[in-house]
Amino acid sequence: MKQIFTCIFLAVSLSFFNCSKSEKGENEKQASSKMPVFALVDSASYDFGTIEEGAVVEHEFKFKNEGEYPLILNNISSSCGCTTPEWPKEPIGPNQTSSIKVRFDSKNKSGPQVKTITVYANTDPAYSELRLKGIVNAAPKPQESK
Rank of each mutant, 00 (worst) to 15 (best):
E144P: 06
I76S: 00
N18P: 00
V56E: 12
S43T: 15
S110I: 02
Y69Q: 15
S22T: 13
V41S: 13
A11N: 02
T123L: 10
S145T: 06
P140A: 08
D124G: 06
I4M: 03
E28G: 03
I76Q: 01
K89G: 12
F5A: 13
E26V: 11
C7L: 14
I72T: 11
G111L: 09
P112A: 13
E53H: 07
E144M: 06
E60G: 10
Q30I: 15
E144R: 12
A39V: 05
I76R: 00
Q143N: 09
K133I: 08
I135M: 12
C82M: 04
L40K: 04
I72D: 01
P94H: 06
W87T: 06
G54M: 01
F9Y: 07
D42Y: 03
A31C: 01
S15T: 15
H59C: 06
R103L: 11
Y69F: 14
K24T: 15
G111H: 11
K146P: 06
N137H: 08
A11V: 05
Y120M: 01
T50W: 07
N95P: 02
I117E: 03
K89L: 14
N27Y: 09
P85Y: 02
C80A: 14
K101C: 02
N27R: 12
T84H: 03
Q30S: 14
K115I: 11
G54P: 01
T97N: 11
G134T: 00
K146S: 12
A31Y: 03
